[in-house]
Amino acid sequence: MMHYRIVISHGQTGYIPKFLDVFGTDSNILFVFDAMTDADLHLVQSAGIPYVCVLNEGNRPLNRNTGLRYWEQNAAMRDDDVIEFFDGDRIPVKYMPDSVPDDWDVLLYTCENDRRLEKLKIGKVTTNVLCNPFYSCGFAMKYGAVKKIYGMNDGSLFDESFTQWGCEDQYLGVMCGRAGMNIYLHDGVILSGKVGGDEMSHPKYRESLQHYVNRLLEKNIFPHIS
């Protein structure tokens, strides 16, 4: 079982050395830049690690999918291989990803200040609800599970029509839930920063929610409550 890591960075240059401190340079870690600076380039080239540049559009689903396609084209991934996604400013302050049940498909990493833990316990969770705990700032997914989503989502893991901040992960969470995946909220890996509460600082968050609802209804996967 191999680990393939994808870090999407939007000018978060200062965090690159910290990721390399955690994982090392020989760790199948890939940086996806959508606002690459000279300093970014210098750091990844001097470290000899792969990187991908995309248009500076801030499209996080696209950036993550781009990273995934890179590994698919450059590594012979098997179904039990693990894809890990990190946002460019989420450094693992604790990294013990293996302390989980064997049946996991998705691991939702927790954060230092994690409001999900006010409602949920560490362990198996359901994401087939409208407000689900699937946050994409840091999570792991078996490649076999990724391919299941491909079948539900037109060949992509993340829906790239989510161009505003947020909700692309909630949407993925609903799909994972409907696919019957085993999803664990996992504290074996703890990331820096917080989860929850910052959505209100995004002025167009309502539009993201609207798009989220629209996509759920279009795909007929709205998690109705009976």
């Binding site: 409208l130 407000c131 929850g196 509460g197 959505e199 929610l209 209804l217 109705h224 409550i225």
Partner: peptide
């Protein structure tokens, strides 16, 4: 509001 129910979405 979906199917007559109001779903609160604040996270």
């Amino acid at each position: 509001k979906v199917d007559g129910k109001v779903y609160v979405m604040s996270y």
